[in-house]
């Protein structure tokens, strides 16, 4: 699905990614974890082609993504901070994205699921953070694509919406989608993810299942296992 080889990225003097090698196979939910500034978002944005790596290659669905754009049709992306053009109405934004992608889409069900009907005619600048995130989720999940990338999907969501989001993620997994998630909410990660990818100082420090992580760190609690991860060096 996604094949990353020797990825390097530097912002000015700040070396963010230094030689990331990663293979993500089809199907399943992968959690990309790591402390603040470890390069999670940079990694994800590199896969999306928003950040251009200094060195290394990325292949998505068997194709090198350098200077390509069509492959993004196969990726649904939920950005970290939901920022939208403020003078558009929710309805117009959904229509615009649909128009740009020219793909079958099921936004109606999602709008109902997150009860966004009352906001459809409102401008995006007037929405609250949580509602914006819901719009963000609708925009991400309304297309049927094999790869889904979620950058901090839980930000600002109320408990009810969070449960709905989790169900949505599970449903997509059952449909055979490959899902990449970053999050700082360990409870959420523990609940949804199959595999953990732990980034530290621009390198992959750990990759494996939740069980492997707990065995390696000898912690029964998932949150503690993650916190302990750096003290027990494991072979990647």
């Amino acid at each position: 699905m996604i094949e990353i080889n020797n990825l390097h990225k530097k912002f000015g003097k700040n070396q963010v990614l230094s030689g990331v090698n990663l293979t993500i196979k089809k199907g399943g939910i992968y959690a990309v974890l790591g402390p603040n500034g470890s390069g999670k978002t940079t990694l994800i944005k590199s896969v999306l082609g928003m950040i251009i790596p200094n060195k290394g290659t990325i292949e998505v669905l068997g194709e090198n993504i350098k200077n390509k754009s069509v492959y993004r049709n196969e990726i649904n992306y939920l950005p970290q901070i939901a920022t939208f053009p403020g003078n558009l109405k929710v309805k117009e934004l959904i229509k615009m994205i649909r128009d740009l992608r020219q793909k079958a889409c099921g936004e109606q069900l999602l709008i109902e699921l997150f009860s966004l009907e009352p906001f459809l005619e409102k401008k995006l600048s007037t929405l609250s953070g949580g509602t914006k995130q819901k719009v963000n989720i609708v925009l991400t999940f309304m297309f049927d694509s094999p790869i889904i990338i979620l950058d901090e999907p839980t930000t600002g969501l109320d408990p009810g919406s969070l449960i709905r989001l989790k169900k949505l993620i599970q449903k997509e997994k059952q449909n055979g989608k490959t899902i990449l998630i970053t999050s700082h909410i360990m409870q959420f990660v523990e609940e949804v993810s199959d595999e953990i990818i732990y980034l530290l100082e621009g390198e992959i420090y750990f990759k494996g299942t939740k069980e492997e992580l707990q065995n390696n760190t000898m912690q029964t609690n998932f949150e503690h296992a993650i916190a302990e991860i750096t003290t027990y060096r494991t072979d990647v």
């Binding site: 928003m50 754009s69 492959y71």
Partner: peptide
């Protein structure tokens, strides 16, 4: 930024 994540050149 929204557009950059879409399949557009």
């Amino acid at each position: 930024e929204l557009l950059l994540a879409q399949p557009l050149k």
